[in-house]
């Protein structure tokens, strides 16, 4: 575990104990990444900042539920962020203020310098390896669903295939990941 990962776990522990200074440390260490996760899904900066606020209020309330044996703290944070962003899109619809070109290419999961990576490196490497073993169309649709929060029908429209085909790709891709990751 790197110093930054340890620092983040310590800050999350302090947050769970009700320490606002610790929450600020969590925010300073993670907000840019969490904001990236949200912005990709809601695609409008003003809305994304509202969701970001909501995420850190949830972190304040729920930090005690984080279990490091299940995954890294940044994964836990980004999961809260994804779910919050998805709920917002389902309630209010998606407004495409920001274009795809404004985001880094998710095909390259190693776009961050190693010392900036807060996730457990072996976890992300294992997933990256397993994704590489999938068929290209399965891999692409799973990444589109994950990073952009697209539903089955939105994905089918995006990649221009029938809905049944799209669902089959997603399910086969997930089955491949399950086998590869040992689920």
């Amino acid at each position: 575990m790197t110093d930054r990962q340890t620092q983040l776990i310590d800050a999350l522990t302090g947050t769970a104990a009700g320490n606002r200074g610790s929450l600020q440390t969590v925010y300073e260490m993670t907000s840019a990444k969490v904001f990236g996760t949200i912005l990709r899904i809601v695609r409008r900066r003003e809305v994304a900042e509202d969701v970001l606020q909501d995420v850190y209020v949830k972190v304040w309330r729920r930090a005690g539920r984080f279990d490091p044996s299940k995954g890294s703290p940044i994964t836990w944070l980004c999961t809260i962020a994804r779910n919050s962003a998805l709920n917002d899109v389902r309630r209010n619809g998606r407004q495409q203020e920001l274009a795809e070109e404004e985001f880094p290419d998710v095909a390259d999961t190693k776009i961050l310098a190693a010392d900036d990576w807060l996730c457990a490196e072996q976890d992300s490497a294992a997933l990256a390896d397993c994704l590489e073993e999938l068929r290209a169309d399965h891999r692409r649709t799973i990444k589109l669903a994950f990073f952009e929060g697209l539903s089955h029908s939105e994905l089918a429209e995006r990649v221009n295939v029938p809905l049944g085909t799209l669902k089959s790709w997603i399910r086969r891709g997930l089955a491949g990941l399950k086998g590869c990751l040992g689920g």
């Binding site: 990444k33 995954g71 994964t75 994804r82 390259d108 990576w117 996730c119 992300s124 994704l131 990941l177």
Partner: peptide, 12 residues
């Protein structure tokens, strides 16, 4: 948790 380990690739 498994899928979330690629979250950081979303960018900053």
């Amino acid at each position: 948790y498994r899928l979330g380990s690629m979250s950081e690739a979303a960018g900053r």
